[in-house]
C-alpha cells in the first residue's frame, strides 16, 4: 500500500508539472499585459522598460518560465499584479475559506439527499417515488443552478426574509449558495445511485441475503448499498473538486468572496502570477482528491485491496 501511494505521489508531481507548463505558455498567448494599457502608453519608453524589467517581463518567455518554475519549487508563487504586493499564496488562502465552506456543505447535502433519493427510488422501482426522483434528477441537471439561485434569493431571501440574499457576513450567508450548488449534485448522485442499486438488487447475492430471512431493510443497507457505492465514488471525485474550489457563477450571484470570482478577475486583468497560482492549486487539489477516491475504493471494495498489492 505504501509503495502504491508513493507511486501515485510521483504521478501526481508529473501531472502538476505538465499542467503548470501548459498553462504558463498558453497564458502568455493572452493579449495585453497586467498593466493598464492607457496609462502604460503615457509612460516614457525607458520607464516602461524598467517596469517590465522589475517584473521580469522583459525576458523571453522560456526564461520567465524557468524562473517561475524555480520559484515555485521553492514555494514562492510570486506576488499579485492587481492586489499590490500581496503574495499569491496569501490571496488564495484568504479566499479559500468561503469557497470551501459552501462547497463542503453542498457536497454533504447533495450526497446525502442524492443517495437517499436514489436508493429509495431503486428500492421502490417504478413507483411514484421513483418517478418523482427521476423528475428531480432531470430537473436538477437541466435547470442551471443560477436560475435556481435567483429563485432562492427571491423567495427565501426577499419574500419570506428567512436568510440573507447575498454577501458574506455570517454563517447564514453560506446556506443559500450551498443549497443552490447542491441541487446539481443531488440530481447526479440520485440518478447514479438509483441505476447502480437497480443493478445490484438483481444480483444473486441479494437473493441469498433474502433467503437468509433478513428484513428488506437489512438486505438493502448491509448488502446492496455498499456494493452500489463503488461507481458513485468515481463521480464523487470531480464533483468534490468542482464544488470545493468554488462555482464561478454561484459565487458571483451571492457575492461570495471565494476563489471562483478571484480566478475570473485574474484572467480579465492578466494577473499572471494569480492565474498560475490558482491553476496549480486547482490541479493539485484535483489530483489529490482523485488519489483519495482511489484509496476509498479499496476501503469499500475488498477485491481492489488485493489488486493493489495490499494483502
Amino acid at each position: 500500500m505504501k509503495r502504491y501511494i508513493g507511486m501515485r505521489l510521483v504521478y501526481l508531481l508529473i501531472t502538476l508539472f505538465v499542467i503548470t507548463t501548459a498553462t504558463f505558455f498558453l497564458m502568455k498567448q493572452l493579449p495585453g499585459t497586467p498593466f493598464d494599457e492607457e496609462k502604460l502608453n503615457r509612460l516614457p519608453v525607458e520607464e516602461r522598460q524598467l517596469l517590465y524589467a522589475s517584473y521580469g517581463l522583459d525576458q523571453p518567455v522560456y526564461v520567465q518560465y524557468v524562473r517561475y518554475l524555480a520559484n515555485v519549487v521553492q514555494g514562492d508563487f510570486g506576488t499579485s499584479f492587481t492586489y499590490k504586493n500581496m503574495p499569491v499564496k496569501d490571496i488564495i488562502a484568504n479566499r479559500i475559506g468561503p469557497s470551501a465552506l459552501i462547497g463542503l456543505q453542498a457536497v454533504v447535502l447533495g450526497l446525502s439527499i442524492g443517495l437517499i433519493l436514489g436508493i429509495i427510488a431503486a428500492y421502490r422501482h417504478n413507483s411514484a417515488w421513483d418517478y418523482f426522483t427521476m423528475f428531480i434528477a432531470v430537473l436538477g441537471v437541466s435547470v442551471p443552478n443560477f436560475v435556481l439561485a435567483a429563485l432562492l434569493q427571491y423567495y427565501v431571501g426577499l419574500k419570506w426574509g428567512l436568510l440573507p440574499v447575498a454577501f458574506w457576513d455570517s454563517y447564514e450567508n453560506s446556506i443559500l449558495p450551498s443549497v443552490a450548488l447542491s441541487v446539481g449534485v443531488v440530481a447526479i448522485i440520485a440518478r447514479f445511485a438509483r441505476n447502480e442499486m437497480l443493478e445490484v438488487l438483481q444480483q444473486d447475492y441479494i437473493t441469498t441475503a433474502k433467503a437468509k430471512g433478513l428484513t428488506n431493510m437489512a438486505v438493502v443497507m448491509r448488502h446492496a448499498v455498499r456494493n452500489s457505492l463503488i461507481p458513485v465514488v468515481t463521480i464523487l471525485g470531480p464533483i468534490v473538486v468542482n464544488l470545493l474550489t468554488g462555482s464561478l457563477v454561484i459565487e458571483n450571484i451571492f457575492g461570495v468572496p471565494g476563489i471562483g470570482s478571484l480566478f475570473v478577475d485574474s484572467i480579465k486583468m492578466n494577473d499572471y502570477s494569480t492565474i498560475m497560482g490558482i491553476t496549480i492549486f486547482y490541479s493539485a487539489f484535483y489530483v489529490f482528491i482523485m488519489l483519495i477516491v482511489d484509496m476509498l475504493y479499496s476501503v469499500i471494495d475488498p477485491r481492489i485491496r488485493l489488486a493493489s498489492g495490499g494483502e
Partner: peptide
Amino acid sequence: MTSLNPTM
C-alpha cells in the same frame, strides 16, 4: 461465484 456478497 455470484451468490455471495463480494464486499462482506
